[in-house]
C-alpha cells in the first residue's frame, strides 16, 4: 500500500500479536508515542519483547504497558528514571527480564537490523560485564565485541508531520530512536501531530522516507507523559 493513512490509533495497532517484538521510539517522554502505547494496552497483547531506551515513568505510557503485565522482556539502555517505579519493582521481583545494552550499541543494533546487517563489531563495553560471554575480535590491535542487529515485528513512533506516503519529520530531540526504528520494524506504525498533502513536506527536509512506514494515524494533540505523571494519572484509569 502506498497510502499509509489509517482511520484510528486503535486500528493502527490492532494486529500486534502475543509474543511480538515491539520497538517503541522515545528518549524519556520526548518522542514517546503515548496514544499508540495506550491502544496497545487496550488491545491487551501479552508476552511482548519491548525495545526502547527507557522503561517509562509513573503509571502511563510504557510504564503502564509494563504494569499491565504485557511485557515479558525489556531491551534498553537506561531502565530507571526519577519517576520510574513500575519496572524496578517487577525487576526486583524477578518478574520481567532485562537485556541491558549500551545506548550506542542499542542504536547501532537497530540501525543494523533495518539495514540488513546481521551483526557488527563495536569497541563499546569491551572489558566490562556487558561483554561477558560475547565473541570478541582484534582489529588493528584493538579489541571489539560482536553485537547482533535487531528487527522488530512492529515499531511504534511519534512524529511531527507526515504525508500519506509516510514521509516524516520530527520535532527537536523527540527524533532520537524513531528514524532507525522505522527502518527495523516489519510493520512501522506512526502517530503524527499533523498530516499534510504530498508535497507539503519539502523533499530536502524529509527525515524518514515513506518506504520505511506502513501506517500513519493523526493525533493532533498528544498527551504528555510528564503532565500525566505530575497529576497522578494512571492508564487504564
Amino acid at each position: 500500500m502506498i497510502n499509509k493513512l489509517v482511520g484510528s490509533d486503535a486500528e493502527a495497532v490492532s494486529d500486534i500479536f502475543n509474543g511480538a517484538i515491539v520497538m517503541i521510539g522515545g528518549f524519556g517522554e520526548a518522542g514517546s508515542p503515548i496514544e499508540l502505547i495506550h491502544r496497545l494496552i487496550d488491545l491487551g497483547s501479552k508476552n511482548l519483547t519491548v525495545v526502547s531506551n527507557n522503561t517509562g515513568s509513573g503509571n502511563v505510557g510504557i510504564a503502564a504497558l509494563i504494569a499491565n503485565r504485557q511485557v515479558s522482556k525489556m531491551i534498553c539502555s537506561f531502565p530507571r528514571s526519577t519517576n520510574s517505579v513500575v519496572f524496578p519493582e517487577l525487576y526486583r521481583a524477578g518478574e520481567i527480564e532485562l537485556e541491558l545494552v549500551p545506548q550506542g550499541t542499542l542504536a547501532e543494533r537497530i540501525r543494523a537490523g533495518g539495514a540488513g546487517i546481521p551483526a557488527f563489531y563495536t569497541p563499546s563495553s569491551v572489558n566490562t560485564p556487558l561483554a561477558d560471554g560475547k565473541e570478541t575480535r582484534e582489529f588493528n590491535g584493538q579489541t571489539y565485541v560482536l553485537e547482533y542487529g535487531i528487527k522488530a515485528d512492529f515499531s511504534l513512533v511519534k512524529c511531527e508531520t507526515a504525508d500519506r506516503y509516510g514521509n516524516l519529520t520530527y520535532h527537536k530531540t523527540a527524533r532520537n530512536f524513531s528514524p532507525i526504528m522505522c527502518t527495523a520494524g516489519s510493520t512501522t506504525i506512526v502517530q503524527a501531530k499533523n498530516i499534510v498533502e504530498p508535497g507539503g513536506i519539502d523533499p530536502e527536509s524529509v527525515i524518514t522516507p515513506g518506504i520505511f512506514v506502513n501506517r500513519v494515524v493523526e493525533i493532533n494533540d498528544p498527551l504528555h507523559e510528564s503532565i500525566l505523571v505530575a497529576s497522578g494519572e494512571r492508564y487504564p484509569q
Partner: peptide, 16 residues
C-alpha cells in the same frame, strides 16, 4: 543486589 543497572551512553563515550 536489587540495584537497577542503567548504562546509558557511558560505555560508548569512553570507547570513542
Amino acid at each position: 543486589p536489587g540495584a537497577i543497572p542503567a548504562v546509558g551512553g557511558a560505555m560508548d563515550l569512553v570507547a570513542g
